[in-house]
Computed example of a mutant assay.
Amino acid sequence: MRTERSLTRLDRLFARLDREPERPAHLDEPRMSPHRIVLLSATLAFYAAIVVAVVTTSWLVRFDWQVMFFRPYQQWPEIHGFLDYWVVLGQRGPTAVMVAAWLGWRSWRQHTLRPLLMFGAALLLLNATVGAAKIGMGRLGPHYATVIGSNEMGQGGDIFPSGHTANAVVTWGILAYLASTPRTRRYLSALSAVVSLSVGLTTVYLGTHWLSDVLLGWAAGLLVLLALPWVEPLITVVETWILGARDAWRRRGGAPVPVSTAPAALLPQRSAAGPRDEQPPAREPVAAARSRTPAYLAPGPHTARCERTPVTPQGTRRPPHPERVRGTSARPLAGG
């Protein structure tokens, strides 16, 4: 009696992954809508207001010094050890490795380079904008401040805006930006907001940044996320070029080229003025491609040996003998 093996949780997980399409159909990609443009303009105005408030040594600078003299790390020393590890969620190296690993898995499963390319573009924009602002304003941090009550601008520092805060906004916010459904995007947006807010306040607690550094870091990271839809056309062109170069290299090596390698946005779509029966080309799921019969097997169905119908052999299996005849015996001849 043969019993079937019960499926484990890992087996069910891989079975579900095998049913995923090569690229999600009707992918909800963010667009540069009027609502997003309004948010981008408001964030840019907030960014400029923070810079002007610090340059003019306004009440915000005085509040920075009050928070610094308050020394939160001395007021609540029991959470210092935990926050030393928590602030790592804003460091570019460890967070980039973790997020890139997850997005690389998504790219491999969905046969698209968009997640990795968008993450690379976001980090490039972050380094260019935040790095230029840090070098241009040259503000010193609380631990290196020289004159009480001054804004410490133009002293060769590199802490304005806060790189930890801006990196936390972009690194964890890109997961919400690349979400496939609006519901997942809302959940990931809330999670990334909590992480970025807590990382920024942790730098103030540890005394490594002024409070105004954190405010400008939040605005700088949010500007990068809001501007990403303008990068989408360039990402599509780069992805198409990379996939085309890969297919050309495979052809030179004699390897088979996949049928569907272009992004879904570049596939021919049905026109509004065309006939109704015209349909876009169907995309074959990965599971169907894996279950295709290999070329070296016969095209017909293959049944197990125990399922075949028994056949009774006809005739005898004994080979014919030329000197023997069934039913007769050879007798010696009597001599005369």
Rank of each mutant, 00 (worst) to 15 (best):
M1P: 10
L7C: 08
R12D: 08
R12I: 10
E20H: 11
P21H: 08
P24K: 12
P24T: 13
H26K: 13
P30N: 07
H35I: 10
L40W: 04
L40T: 07
L44K: 03
F46E: 06
A53I: 05
V55D: 09
S58F: 06
R62D: 14
R62L: 10
W65E: 02
Q66W: 08
V67H: 00
P72C: 00
P77W: 01
I79K: 00
G81Y: 06
L83E: 01
V88A: 15
L89W: 05
A96I: 08
A96Q: 12
V97R: 04
A100E: 04
A100C: 07
A100L: 13
A101D: 02
A101R: 03
M118I: 10
F119P: 02
F119Q: 07
N127T: 11
A133W: 00
I135W: 12
Y144W: 12
I148G: 06
N151Q: 04
G163L: 02
N167D: 09
V169F: 02
S180Q: 13
R183W: 05
T184N: 13
R186F: 06
A193F: 05
V195S: 02
S198Q: 00
T203D: 00
V204S: 00
V204D: 00
L206P: 00
G207I: 01
L211S: 10
S212F: 02
L216R: 04
A219I: 05
G221A: 04
E232M: 14
P233R: 09
V238D: 05
T240E: 11
L243E: 15
R251Q: 14
P256Q: 09
T261M: 13
P263I: 11
A264S: 14
P268D: 08
S271Q: 13
A272R: 12
R276V: 11
D277T: 09
Q279E: 13
P281E: 15
E284A: 11
P285Q: 06
P294M: 10
G300N: 12
H302T: 11
R305Q: 09
R308C: 08
H321L: 15
P322G: 10
R324E: 13
A330G: 05
